[in-house]
Design a protein around this nucleic acid. Structure first.
Lengths: 228, 228, 228, 228
DNA sequence: CATGAATGAGAGTTCATTCAT
DNA sequence: AATGAATGAACTCTCATTCAT
């Protein structure tokens, strides 16, 4: 789910647009240390949350000295950026098997949602982290937005396509419908895989039921035919 | 990757469940000071965000000494609780005029969504704050959940009712459908009224178009009859 | 003596023009603490030099907690500013008794130089500090410049006056001559009272001989008549 | 106030008296690297000032690795020493053409001052650096002192000579007069060529006017005859 | 000799919380 | 009840120096 904080809330220091400023390590040893830091950072971030993570926690986890951190990153933001960039691939491009070959819109839709939900589940901790950090840092809000927009755009094209083929409700704006329906799925994913996994915050969820429900609602919402 | 979410991320200090611990002020002067603090807190929270707000900012805004804060609240969480409790009414019970009288499910649905979206827009800054703080504090996550569940429950009853009346798709679980569709609307509201209002984070939104779209999608999703 | 560093050498952070930003203490206790800090700062600065002074040294000397420093000053610069402002009076306006009554230019000159040298000697440690810090901080360079200019201007007027009265060499530009001669005296003072007092850095100096020499050279340089 | 100057201000680590400890490089490659470091150091020192210079800045400018620095120098002081020693010649022995042949004391004096001022101007950045570092490091204070004393001694001999020839005021101690007058010229040079070149710190100066003025004042101060 | 990563002590700063007045 | 100064733990970041390759 999407969440945010008052615009002016963050003092915006000069920050790089989510790309490493420090030059990459030249030696093998350097690469190893950097990798250890990124891995440690991910672990600690996911465990303690972005805000409660001290840089010392990361270096400790990585097994290196506090100062070594700054050989590779300028601050907490930059490690997180590195963590996210490293995981970006799997988060962005779920890849959804062969089903696309079919002509059955419902089957395609279900496959798409399945891929999305699976990827979300796989990266749930990271998604939780992203949501948290997006509340606090504009740069990561942008990152999240890029990710969201990728899905929304893809789905909007799918909807427009169905409309052209005459199988989807032509009354709705494809873009806005995509925003709404994609949002619907992402909220469900967040609730199921982020909150649902937490003690006392939510109940565990039946993956298939979730998938079927959102798919059906989505199909209905577009008035796809058949599939009573 | 597995999906245990950052449950432990927040050090959980002994905290009261969102109700003031401190006994209420006895004197008039005390009541005035407390009120000033709550009002100031809301203003500063909305302006600077929860995390960037220093208690000193609040007392300064309230025009009282730093120490006075502790006469009424134990910490930042408690003021925020007070702020939210004070605003709870309008956030929770939008109240939606007389339309409920009609039998037209679509009209009822639209009225309900209108009321929700209007309330969201009215309290957008507070909602933003709530989302932010929910990322950081379990107690406020619970608060948010109570609010969300109220809407979800209400909508689920509506859906079940329509199903019983035979006008809604019986294949979907009313509760889960309500989660999905309510979530859909809340995401749209968040994007429109929280992110949409921020420079460079989102475009301003046409309220009516938003309302019509989500209502239509909702109606379609349930296969409500009629309406073209 | 005047000394400085390459212009670009100092990263110039937004700094206040040598005036306290923090609001002054309201209570007696506050005033006491602030005063203790200024006094401690002066002592430590004079003992350890500006650069080697840690804020912790100052608070320790003042007998208060590290954090208390920031109640009154934003950083090291600001305390030093406070120290200098407090001592400014005596450094700037030596006050030189009754001699001004006479018409004898030489006597006036000697009295003036005596007052200057005495004041310099009295504040030697502070002058040393000022020289040191002027090498490092533009704002204090300005401060030093204001002080220097005050003397130079005063002396330039004296020289011009003598020229008008026909007792001083009219060939020299009064302002530039004042720069040169005032500079001459200040170098001598620096060498005598700052360096001269240090072990192995210079020999102790006979105050009267110093005074007589610079006065005679000054008088000669302007071709004042009489005096052998 | 008393006048013990900040003698103890600098922690005095075991330091060599401004001569390279490290043995000179044996290979050609080594000599090249060392030279590159010295050159880079001078550039960076002059640009950023001694204190703000990081060893990393120097090695970067020299195009070699951080660790290589320690092959040739033990620390920042030592490079600076190397820099100064390399430039010492031009700073110390201006060389002043043929004018010394004349008997006209004024001409000799002017030639001497011209040579001094030209050398100062030529090495202004280095002089600025020296002044800065002298404020901070005893060893460089000694270096500066040796330089200053060379000039003072030379000028004192000149003055004594003139006194013996009966053309200079015999009432002043040649050594002290030399200190004062040499100091006068050096202050003027510092103000003109170091401060004068900086934006907003001083106005640019007319070299010839400066030369004529200090020379005339100097001549007058000694009561040299002629030259009205 | 050169490299460049690793180290870690140490400094400045923030701010929730306490407490004497 | 109110005040506002005092506290000090906590954290980030710098950079001279070392050392394995």
């Amino acid at each position: 789910m999407d969440t945010t904080a008052p615009e002016d809330s963050e003092k915006a220091p000069p920050m790089a647009p989510l790309s490493s400023l420090r030059e990459p390590p030249t030696t093998k040893r350097g690469a190893r240390t950097r990798a250890a830091l990124v891995q440690a950072a991910r672990k600690v971030f996911e465990r303690d949350g972005y805000l409660d993570t001290r840089l010392a926690d990361i270096t400790k986890e990585a097994g290196c000295a506090a100062g070594s951190f700054y050989t590779y990153f300028a601050n907490k933001e930059e490690v997180l950026a590195a963590v996210l960039l490293e995981a970006q691939e799997d988060m962005l491009h779920p890849g959804m098997g062969r089903v696309q070959d079919t002509d059955d819109p419902y089957a395609v839709l279900e496959a798409s949602n399945r891929a999305y939900l699976q990827a979300y589940k796989r990266n749930a901790k990271l998604m939780a982290l992203l949501e948290q950090v997006a509340q606090v840092d504009r740069e990561f809000r942008k990152f999240r937005r890029r990710r969201t927009d990728a899905f929304i755009g893809r789905n909007a094209r799918g909807i427009a396509d169905l409309q052209e083929r005459g199988v989807a409700d032509r009354e709705v704006d494809p873009m806005m419908a995509s925003r709404a329906l994609s949002g619907m799925v992402s909220v469900m994913a967040y609730n199921a895989f982020v909150l649902g996994e937490r003690q006392e915050e939510g109940a565990p969820v039946d993956f298939e039921k979730l998938l079927v429900t959102v798919t059906r609602l989505w199909a209905n919402a577009l008035r796809l035919p058949g599939h009573r």
